[in-house]
Amino acid sequence: MFEARLISATILKKILDAIKDLLNEGTFDCSDSGIQLQAMDNSHVSLVSLTLRSDGFDKFRCDRNISMGMNLGSMAKILKCANNDDTVTIKAQDNADTVTFMFESPNHEKVSDYEMKLMNLDQEHLGIPETDYSCVVRMPSMEFARICRDLAQFSESMLICCTKEGVKFSASGDVGSANVKLAQTSSVDKEEEAVSIEMQEPVTLTFACRYLNAFTKASPLSGQVQLSMSADVPLVVEYRIQDLGHIRYYLAPKIED
């Protein structure tokens, strides 16, 4: 028996919004430590890794490890049926071929359940090595989303250059060129507004704007985003989900032809 309950459906809606543009389907691996999903996007350029810890749920029970392959478009249709303040419970029997989403209104007067067929997906798990990154940038997630959106107008790819002075995002194309520089903030009223840089060595890498923009769909999950970079290895874009886990996106840098 698997059962996981969240007080608010909003968080699950936001998680789905953060992955459904990149993935058509995904396998949710459930164990007593929580729920994990790892999947490459359709073109195999980026990787999504979602971790939701069992202690972050209002209620969590997982008697036996189960893997639930879900069509994310179908899941999105079901989650649309939940109000933001509904409690959501995800339930499945051991070896089941369906999963049930149950939504309860705050006053418990409306209860709805939606059963969805599970899929058998060919899952190809990738081992992600522990890496000490040369540069780790933390910045407001909305700021990163804005920069990605703005620079995508100029080019398909964006250069991210990180030094101890700051981080620079650049794009150039037929229209012209764009540069956005962010310095490390000295003092801020709110922690969420801070830009911080931990640098061992300066790094300059090029990434496809299309994927970066897809990652920023996770912005509603977290006020801050963390970018971890080293030469010649994939960028990690991480959004922490408060008290519940995180979503990480890995993107291979572009290489000069």
């Binding site: 490459m40 798990h125 990738l126 081992g127 890995y250 000069e256």
Partner: peptide, 12 residues
């Protein structure tokens, strides 16, 4: 050129 992510991480 855009390499795939699988070229960086090994299958486990």
């Amino acid at each position: 050129m855009q390499p795939t992510i699988a070229s960086y991480f090994q299958k486990s």
